[in-house]
């Protein structure tokens, strides 16, 4: 596959390259590319918008910041890190992508991600779907009650909320309480059979964090802090991901 020639428009210095270098102790190894193409050949985003990770890095190295910003490709790379994993020089292309994302004016970033991040900032639940503390508690208790009443052998099933001192603080993707609450039940049954000492928290229960995907570092940090505080306030030992 012939690559489009990269046009060099005068001498420019890439701010992306510089930013990533400042950020990472070893400079993200961005200068060490051998142009071997291992990254691109195993990247599912290769070919989208005529771009691939090696080309993206090359363009940054050539100071083509404007072109990188204009392209939607930074939002098509999922920052999955497979390229670093296979790169002989461990070059951190996803970090570069993250910086390109973060360099767009905030309100021009993809609407769906922006909306989810903003929504999560509204409540201490951190739910990207806007579920409040009361909503969450109500749904969990309602579903648990229904199971106790209708499923033989599950009369004792518990789904504790805000239980002080539990070992595990379980988080939950907003999709379940908001759109398919019955999907939480299998998880509760497993925890019950295992005799796990667990709880949900009305604060910080939402597993998702779109502010991270949006490369909004401040909001990302805020969300992480709210969640960490929720775990600490309940005196739980582990933050347990359902995935």
């Amino acid at each position: 596959m012939a690559e489009e020639a990269i046009k060099i428009s005068g001498k420019k210095k890439s701010m992306f390259i510089d930013k990533v270098k400042q950020l990472l102790p070893d400079g993200g190894n961005l200068n060490l590319c051998l142009t071997c193409g291992a990254c691109s050949s195993g990247c599912p985003a290769t070919g989208l918008e005529g771009m691939d990770p090696r080309k993206f890095l090359r363009m940054a190295a050539l100071g083509m910041d404007e072109e990188l910003l204009k392209s939607e490709w930074a939002w098509m790379c999922t920052m999955c890190q497979r390229c670093i994993y296979v790169c002989p020089m461990k070059i951190d292309i996803p970090q570069l992508v993250f910086n390109v994302r973060g360099s767009r004016p905030r309100d021009e970033r993809p609407k769906g991600i922006l909306g989810s991040c903003n929504m999560a900032l509204k409540h201490d639940t951190c739910s990207a779907m806007g579920a409040s503390e009361e909503d969450f508690k109500f749904v969990v208790e309602d579903v648990a009650e229904e199971v106790r009443n209708t499923q033989v052998g599950w009369e004792e099933l518990q789904a504790p909320v805000n239980k002080q001192g539990a070992m595990y603080f379980l988080n939950q993707n907003s999709r379940e309480p908001v759109t398919e609450p019955d999907e939480m039940v299998p998880l509760w049954k497993i925890l019950h059979l295992a005799g796990a000492d667990w709880t949900y928290g009305t604060k910080g229960w939402a597993a998702e964090n779109y502010c991270m995907f949006m490369a909004d570092t401040e909001s990302w940090k805020h969300i992480v802090e709210v969640k960490a505080k929720a775990v600490d306030d309940l005196g739980c030992k582990y933050w347990l991901n359902t995935e």
């Binding site: 999922t78 769906g112 909306g115 779109y210 995907f213």
Partner: peptide, 20 residues
């Protein structure tokens, strides 16, 4: 660790770019 990403991560599902 060598698996391909499915394309659901990084906010792709919310980015409004379903074709890509």
């Amino acid at each position: 660790s060598n698996n391909y990403c499915c394309g659901g991560g990084g906010g792709f599902l919310q980015s409004g770019l379903p074709e890509a």
